[in-house]
């Protein structure tokens, strides 16, 4: 017969006991307390600081500015919103939304192959290199990067130089001659603003798309091929639908970040304004806080509508 293992039964020191362990006992018996301790700080932050600021903003938008005295009239009025609907202001809204939508589409198109490669093929060192390369731009200052792009896109910049060296100046000139988005040089055209925005926000698209693709088991792709689907069909019927939650998450970043940005379009692009710039000018230079507030409400409303659409498309349903 086997001998009982004496070392297992004797000489085992008791579990330590102390005030911290007793505090754990106390808290663990009261689930609500755990929840309260965990949620109180973020709830305070979100409720008081964040939502409070938003509410003040919203309230400001229902006041108006006295044209003569330049003072804010603290009376309820819709006149500021009426001002918002003037053609010049609507132009700003349309311009910003079109830009945000184009940047989002372009980011998704550029991000997908990179994310697909990272999710399906990269392992070990390649995966580490992927994360590094995607995140690296985020380590340096936003301003530095935007000014760098101004130099790259300038008429004397590296792109013009490269185009001359490869005899493709014609292509650049053709791009710049497109009415509406062209201009004297890339750095003062909407094309330039667009390129900078895509560059700035594409990492925020790559990461969620990659995460979504990573969750697609390889067996689904094999099953699709097994049932007769060539790679293109598998892409359309299996991979893209399953990547959609990631694209939706990424588009929320790219879309809202473009909607609110007021620095990049000021440095790169024509002198026309985007929503962020108008808010900046109205509340700073012009001192028209109500109009600035009304303009700030626009991206919030657009994002709310956008999120509702994305949600209806089922992008938030976990698979």
């Amino acid at each position: 017969m086997a001998r009982p293992l004496s070392s297992l039964t004797a000489d085992l020191p008791p579990l330590p006991d102390g005030p911290l362990r007793r505090l754990s006992d106390f808290v663990l018996r009261r689930r609500w307390l755990v929840l309260a301790v965990l949620l109180a700080p973020p709830m305070f932050w979100l409720g008081a600081v964040y939502l409070g600021a938003l509410a003040t903003l919203l309230a400001q938008s229902f006041f108006s500015l006295d044209e003569f005295s330049g003072l804010v009239v603290h009376e309820f009025t819709l006149s500021t919103y009426a001002q918002l609907l003037r053609p010049a202001n609507l132009d700003v809204v349309v311009r910003t939304v079109v830009m945000a939508a184009s940047v989002t589409v372009a980011s998704a198109v550029i991000a997908f192959p990179i994310a697909y490669y990272a999710a399906r093929y990269a392992h070990g060192r390649m995966k580490a290199a992927f994360y590094l390369l995607v995140m690296l731009p985020l380590w340096s200052s936003y301003l530095v990067r935007v000014y760098a792009w101004k130099l790259i896109l300038a008429k004397e910049g590296v792109i013009t130089w490269a185009a001359e060296a490869t005899h493709t100046t014609g292509l650049i000139n053709w791009l710049l001659s497109i009415p509406g988005i062209g201009g004297p040089s890339l750095s003062v055209s909407y094309i330039g603003t667009f390129i900078v925005f895509v560059y700035l926000w594409v990492p925020y698209m790559i990461l969620p798309v990659q995460a979504a693709l990573e969750r697609v088991p390889a067996s689904l792709l094999e099953a699709s091929a097994d049932l007769g689907a060539a790679p293109g069909r598998t892409l359309r019927s299996v991979i893209l639908p399953l990547a959609m939650p990631g694209v939706a998450a990424g588009s929320i970043f790219t879309f809202s970040l473009t909607l609110g940005d007021y620095i990049a379009p000021q440095i790169v692009g024509p002198s026309t304004l985007f929503i962020g710039q108008v808010v900046y000018i109205q509340q700073g230079t012009a001192g028209n806080i109500p109009l600035a507030a009304a303009f700030s409400v626009v991206p919030i409303v657009i994002m709310a509508v956008y999120l509702a659409i994305v949600r209806r498309m089922g992008a938030f349903d976990a698979h």
Partner: peptide
């Protein structure tokens, strides 16, 4: 390639397409 072979597989993890209904899975 697999999509040109007259064989079909029942996978260990079933590999059903999560975004499709049961009927669409079967009719894939």
């Amino acid at each position: 390639p697999p999509y040109r072979r007259a064989v079909n597989t029942v996978f260990q993890d079933y590999a059903l397409f999560p975004h499709m209904s049961v009927a669409d899975n079967v009719a894939y």
